[in-house]
Design a protein around this nucleic acid. Structure first.
Lengths: 324, 324
DNA sequence: GCATGTAGGACAGGTCACGACCTAATTGAG
DNA sequence: CTCAATTAGGTCGTGACCTGTCCTACATGC
């Protein structure tokens, strides 16, 4: 009787999240209460909106199923590590469209992640970052810790201090009120109010160093253009690399579409076994060349010339590598 | 007063997981209770092992910090989707060493994931699978749903029915008692007791089709060699492709190690700016050639000859692509 | 020093949680 | 078909617990 009701409910929730059926008697045993109380607890969970499905008859039992709202997830150590590592991949550029949500979830998780697990995440995370960020491109890699610190400060309305490297390489210290963290293509931007400059700025996150939240909270101001993403686009759009991709493939359009990242656009069929892809790609040439190579089908670069040059370089490097 | 204590505690836990400070008065307002009760609730959470840090003085507040145990995660829709998508990447072969934990966590999450979110996960998941599985290799892609069904059945001790494609292409229906789901390199294996054949089998998951748990539970038998992983290795080891990689790189060993997947082993320095990598790689030649190309440094393949052949093919394809 | 926050004790009143006992309904196995 | 095992739900009495209202102590920033 020493254990109170809320604790038992949480424990019950964690038991039911195991993908299996739990007979009421076993639950009663585990929770050290009577079967009647287990039934009442299940009722309570249902009232809270978590649908517990019960199969009747002999060999019946309880099981948590999908409902309208997501119940609080109770994870063990390994699962938490797996989620953190997976989220880092998602916050990088592995998955388009969920980068910001990934960072939010990561910040939420890391805030409460026991330190012993944090070490394991770091070890595994660095081991895998080579895949996502790859050595390819302009080397603008971002530490996941940086992203989570920025995300926490942004959503918590806390002032943020960091060092920033300008385009000419000069490093300055900044004290800012962060407003929004935005992912665009393979880059991250922070829209913030710079307290020293007394004006709005858009920072490239890969140039941010040693960020930390001061703890001081601030009352949000109004963003100039009304929308932070708008402001970011207005200030740094032309700075981002982009080019007009034009290539033909000796493979069906559907297959090519499946083997290229969605940001490359969709190819249009020019025949049963050939297609052409034209779109403006917002990325580095080296990265684009690599992704085209990874498609694994015969293709021809029609433009731009710089991309053809990159592909040629990669090709000759491989030829040299094999011509031992 | 209609809301009971357990519900309020869960709500408090979800509020505190937002990475920000919460003054007691605001919590009291949100939870519709007095400030005194908020303090008591915070105490209760602390008793449950979730360390709530309170900053004293004016402008103080409560915040959930990292403790010994991970508190139940309360996620919103977007965060849940981000986690599911990230886990699919982790369960694929993006991250080595956490595949099985990723699948367990994914099974746990998908069991309770509202259907509206499931659709979004599927959409995003297929869009990104091209990166992880890539078109490269022997095309042995595995649907994430398959993995989660197998994982649930395995941990829930439920009988599993599926169709299986033998090496000669023949499809048969199987009824099994699944014991363990094992990730090895880029492949997944299921160790199970085949009820029709009345014997133990190791199944390649990429050849499993339409799996579903029958719901009937079974009492675990003893695995032949005592350990399922041992059994798997004994039965299918020679079937897995592997070769002796030997290559030299014109770059520091540390940099090469960072740019190659860990499964390739660690290169040993042969000079300040050169190194040699020798290890047995358990993967397809085409995939290995691609990964070497992605390293982005000058290199030479010394062996095996088949790998050099693959690299040469890739190189000539790229040269053709650029020679428009 | 003052305002504002957390920390926590004491108390009264009402509520609710628990276990014990009961019956009904459902399902699978023999 | 029958039996066994399971969920579902009602009722009741006792006792614990939860809440709000006081109160004081303590820490912090301006």
């Amino acid at each position: 009787m020493t254990t109170d009701t809320p604790a038992r409910l949480l424990q019950l929730l964690s038991l039911l999240q195991t993908p299996r059926e739990w007979p009421g008697s076993e639950l009663a045993d585990r929770l050290q209460v009577s079967r009647r109380t287990v039934r009442r607890d299940v009722d309570r969970l249902r009232d809270l909106g978590y649908p517990v499905q019960a199969t009747m008859g002999a060999d019946g039992g309880y099981r948590l199923v999908a409902g309208k709202a997501l119940p609080p997830l109770v994870l063990d150590d390994e699962e938490a590590v797996a989620i953190a590592v997976g989220l880092r991949a998602g916050a990088g550029h592995a998955v388009e469209g969920i980068e910001e949500a990934s960072v939010r979830a990561l910040a939420k998780l890391e805030q409460v992640l026991p330190s012993r697990l944090r070490h394991r995440v770091n070890t595994l995370g660095t081991a895998t970052s080579s895949l996502v960020y790859s050595g390819v491109g302009d080397g603008a890699t971002i530490a996941p810790e940086t992203l989570t610190v920025l995300a926490s400060a942004t959503s918590g309305h806390e002032r943020l201090r960091f060092s920033y490297e300008a385009a000419d390489g000069a490093r300055t210290r900044r004290l800012t009120e962060p407003y929004r963290l935005i992912s665009a293509g393979r880059r991250w931007y922070l829209v913030a109010y710079d307290l020293d400059r007394d004006d709005w700025r858009t920072f490239r996150v890969d140039r941010v160093g040693d960020p930390f939240a001061t703890g001081a909270r601030f009352a949000p101001r109004e963003v100039p253009t009304g929308d932070a993403a708008e402001f970011m686009r207005a200030t740094v759009w032309r700075a981002a690399p982009s080019f007009e991709l034009d290539a033909t493939f000796d493979a069906p359009a559907a297959e090519v579409a499946r083997r290229l990242p969605p940001s490359f656009g969709t190819p249009e069929a020019t025949g049963a076994d050939s297609c052409r892809l034209r779109s403006t790609v917002q990325d580095s040439l080296e990265w684009a060349a690599m992704r085209l190579a990874m498609a694994g089908v015969e293709f021809t670069v029609r433009g731009p010339a710089e991309l053809a040059e990159q592909v040629a370089q990669l090709g000759s490097r491989l030829t040299r590598a094999a011509a031992n």
